[in-house]
Write a protein that binds this DNA or RNA. Structure first.
Length: 793
RNA sequence: GCCCGGGUGGCGGAAUGGUAUACGCGAGGGACUUAAAAUCCCUUGAUCGCAAGGUCAUGUGGGUUCGAUCCCCACCCCGGGCACCA
């Protein structure tokens, strides 16, 4: 008998599957389609690691399972290849990013193939391919034409190391998501996509999606919708007003002062007679210069300066109240100004205490003069006194002629980068015509060759230095014009790649509608939690927009989202080179084979949980595969014993349900239980076949090899998933737990379906039970058929 | 501070109202071997007991229930997200 040797069978089958096109998905087939997706990787010089392996294997198990269940399955792969590392490497070595990217792709492809991932390579895409980014540019122009892409100069997040603007979503804890450098605020001309226009749809669409609740909540919180009112406060003896946004218009009578942000336009108004102008200007300058870090370290200690000589009028009661400038009010949210109600807002309370401002209770519920942020009935509120806060919100807003308003935390998406290795934004600046889109037939605007890749740091991209490229003709008037030199962020290409997979070679459209209609939406999207407020939010926004434009057939892109926990090193810490705890999947393949690697990774723990790699644990699955090999190839085994059939059928039921519910760890444990039970006994070929088919999604190579060794000609991965016999798996006899007062006292073995009377008789015969009852008759008996009988004495 | 997860043997974990600790790793003992590896068999939550069996254990304290790892309340700890968003 041959020995199980992964290194001799795995490459053989990988090659064979490729040649036979086992994983190629057919468009518009008769079968019901399933579209399984993983987040396509950035092809880095480091190669792919465990963090990639986990979702790819999960998606692979799922697609193989679904294919065997009779679906037309698409499981495609591609490369998100624009981005900083390749560009930084080019800066250091002078090698074009295209060259390093191609090399890295080749290596990553070798890796995923060696893991036995059944991707459909006929649909491979690469975001840096002009045939691909042509459509990224075209799609951007649809936003532009719809008025959802706009240019503005404003204070934005800027990474001083990468020398480029960043989107809000790319700033993690005040630091650049890419390099960890402290982000600063800088005034730069940028292109924005108006994602805020879709804030409501982005929230409302979530409710019908089969996504993890935590991911939905996180997106919802990021968008941060709150409902409140806009209310105007007149500035005494002037024509000017300060408008505020508040979610608590019911507390208006308690507004004892106002605060405006340091960025508020009122401070630029020279007509206002601010008596302490110098002091105010100094405060504003200092506040604006603060970095994120300084603001955090200062904590919640309130600072501010009163605008002397200025008073505002509380529209509810006509009282004159002071106006402050303070940096606890943010310029970028709401109107950049607030009414301060110290009795009912923690921050206003702290500020009022520090500056000795009056605290007036207007909502009942708290201690007098103390903070109370809850709801209650109104007090000290004129004719509204006695009303509930909920009712008063609208009533008071109406009374002061305010209007209800929804407000969001979400900011528009800073969409331009001052870097080389990205899609050029396909716009032309003409002095006469303004900003003009590049005509469709001139797309793609190709990324030109440059001498120097370095970011300039001036707010211009390196492309600005190439005059021959920048200078062009206006498509509208034919006059002298200049190209936009900013490039798109990395998130552009990934915002629509799942659409391109449905029709990757189309030269006329980004994808044909009939193909999208067949394949969309993505049925199952495997990925990490880290993209919740990045890629996942961005691509939903693109999709919602494209749906409104009638360019895609479904309202949402991803029907079901499955997230995974990260794999920690053997020491329980995050894998990192500096810590020296990185487990390299390629080395595991070399030592144990891809099948063992895949199975062990799945067996480690629940897919969504954070788990640590245990270097010795893989021996368990390695032994399992070895025993499986021997079991399948040993013995002629015609012993058609019913017990074996029952054991295997039970496994079929459990494994099927577990795969459907993404519980791969318990599915594998059921397979182990099954093998443990049948091993060493004669078993009919039919049981062996069932077992092999169940193993096939998890360990595709060994299953295929054994399938062929046992006389089959076609790939096991195109076989039908096994079924089980509902009657057979029922137990004929069952052990019923006997308890006295809820405590275990023994079991009785009886035929299934025993009624209470017979069970009682059998149970009372147990010595342990009569001892526990101590001669008493049970007051009550609880009987759950085939499970338990409990005497309450 | 607010919002999500989570806390079970030596370790990864299983079980979400009904015998807690499946499966795997590790450990101990044995078989085979000149020996070792590999493989196979047995034992393995703690504790008392010769045994039968008992008692105690799912972060802590309460509650609901015939019965709670599971449901409810309060608290502690760990991980993640947001963070002066009015």
């Amino acid at each position: 008998m041959k020995r199980y040797d992964p290194s001799s069978i795995e490459p053989k089958w990988q090659k064979q599957w490729d040649e036979d096109g086992v994983y190629v998905a057919r468009d518009k087939g008769k079968k019901e389609k399933k579209y399984v997706l993983i987040e396509f990787p950035y092809p880095s010089g480091e190669g792919l690691h465990m963090g990639h392996l986990r979702p790819y294997v999960a998606g692979d198990v799922m697609s193989r399972f679904l294919r065997m269940r009779g679906h037309e399955v698409m499981y495609p792969m591609g490369w998100d290849a624009f981005g900083l590392p390749a560009e930084n490497y080019a800066i250091k070595k002078g090698i074009h990013p295209r060259v390093t990217t191609a090399k890295n792709i080749e290596n990553a492809k070798r890796q995923v193939k060696s893991w036995g991932i059944g991707f459909d390579w006929s649909r491979e895409v690469n975001t840096t391919d002009p045939g691909y980014y042509k459509w990224t540019q075209w799609l951007f122009l649809q936003f532009f034409k719809a008025g959802l892409a706009y240019e503005a100069t404003g204070s934005i997040n800027w990474c001083p190391k990468d020398k480029t603007g960043l989107a809000n979503e790319e700033v993690i804890g005040g630091k650049c998501d890419r390099c960890g450098t402290e982000v600063v605020q800088k005034e730069v001309r940028q292109w924005y996509l108006k994602i805020t226009e879709y804030a409501d749809e982005l929230i409302d669409g979530l409710k019908d999606l089969d996504w993890p609740e935590s991911v939905k909540v996180q997106q919802e919180n990021w968008i941060g919708r709150s409902e409140g009112a806009l209310i105007d406060f007149q500035i005494q003896d002037t024509k000017y007003k300060i408008q505020v946004f508040t979610t608590r218009p019911d507390t208006l009578f308690g507004a004892t002062y106002m605060v405006i942000a340091p960025e508020h336009p009122l401070l630029e108004n020279k007509e206002l007679r601010i008596e302490n102008r110098g002091e105010v200007d100094a405060y504003v300058a200092k506040a604006k210069a603060k970095t994120e870090e300084e603001r955090i370290t200062e904590g919640k200690e309130k600072t501010g300066v009163e605008l002397k000589g200025i008073k505002a009028v509380n529209p509810a009661n006509g009282k004159m109240i002071p106006v402050f400038v303070a940096d606890y009010v943010l310029g970028g949210y709401g109107t950049g100004a607030i009414m301060a109600v110290p009795a009912h807002d923690e921050r206003d309370f702290a500020f009022a205490k520090k500056f000795g401002l009056p605290v007036i209770d207007v909502i009942s519920g708290g201690e007098p003069g103390e903070l109370w942020e809850g709801a209650g009935d109104l007090i000290n509120s004129g004719k509204f006194t006695g009303m509930s806060s909920e009712e008063a919100k609208k009533a008071i807003t109406d009374f002061v002629h305010g209007k209800m308003k929804k407000q969001y935390r979400l900011r528009d998406w800073v969409f331009s980068r001052q870097r080389y290795w990205g899609e050029p934004i396909p716009l032309i600046h003409c002095e006469k015509c303004g900003v003009v889109p590049v005509p469709d037939d001139e797309l793609p605007v190709r990324l030109p060759e440059v001498e120097k890749y370095e970011p300039t740091g001036t707010g211009e991209s390196p492309l600005a230095a190439i005059e021959s490229w920048v200078n062009t003709k206006c498509p509208q008037c034919g006059g002298e014009a200049k190209r936009e030199t900013n490039t798109m962020p990395q998130w552009a290409g990934s915002s629509w790649y799942y659409l391109r997979y449905t029709d990757p070679k189309n030269a006329k459209e980004f994808a044909a509608m009939d193909k999208m209609k067949y394949w969309l939406p993505v049925d199952m999207y495997f990925g990490g939690i880290e993209h919740t407020t990045l890629h996942l939010l961005y691509s939903r926004f693109w999709h919602l927009f494209l749906h409104d434009q009638k360019l895609v057939p479904t309202p949402e892109p991803y029907a079901r989202r499955v997230t995974h926990g990260i794999i920690l090193g053997p020491d329980g810490e995050k894998m990192s080179k500096s810590r020296g705890n990185v487990v390299n999947p390629d080395e595991i393949v070399k030592e144990f084979g891809a099948d063992a690697l895949r199975m062990y990774e799945l067996f480690l723990g629940p897919h969504e949980a954070m788990v640590s790699w245990n270097s010795q644990g893989i021996l368990g699955v390695s032994r399992f595969l070895d025993r499986l090999w021997n079991f399948i190839l040993s013995g002629e085994g015609e012993g058609n014993n019913e017990e074996a059939a029952r054991v295997v059928d039970r496994a079929v039921k459990k494994v099927t349900e577990d795969i459907e519910n993404i519980k791969f760890n318990t599915a594998i444990s059921s397979l182990m239980i099954c093998l443990n039970a049948v091993e060493g006994k004669p078993a009919a070929d039919a049981f062996k076949e069932k077992l092999l088919k169940m193993i096939a999604p998890f360990a595709p190579h060994v299953a295929e090899e054994l399938w062929h060794e046992t006389g089959h000609k076609n790939s096991i991965h195109l076989e039908k998933w096994p079924e089980y016999d509902e009657e057979l798996i029922k137990e004929a006899e069952i052990s019923v737990v006997v308890q006295v007062n809820g405590k275990y006292r023994g079991t009785i073995t009886a035929p299934t379906g025993l009624d209470q009377k017979d069970a009682t008789v059998l149970a009372l015969r147990l010595q342990n039970v009569s001892a526990a009852l101590d001669g008493k008759t049970p007051k009550k008996t609880i009987y759950i058929k085939d499970r338990l009988i409990n005497f309450v004495a």
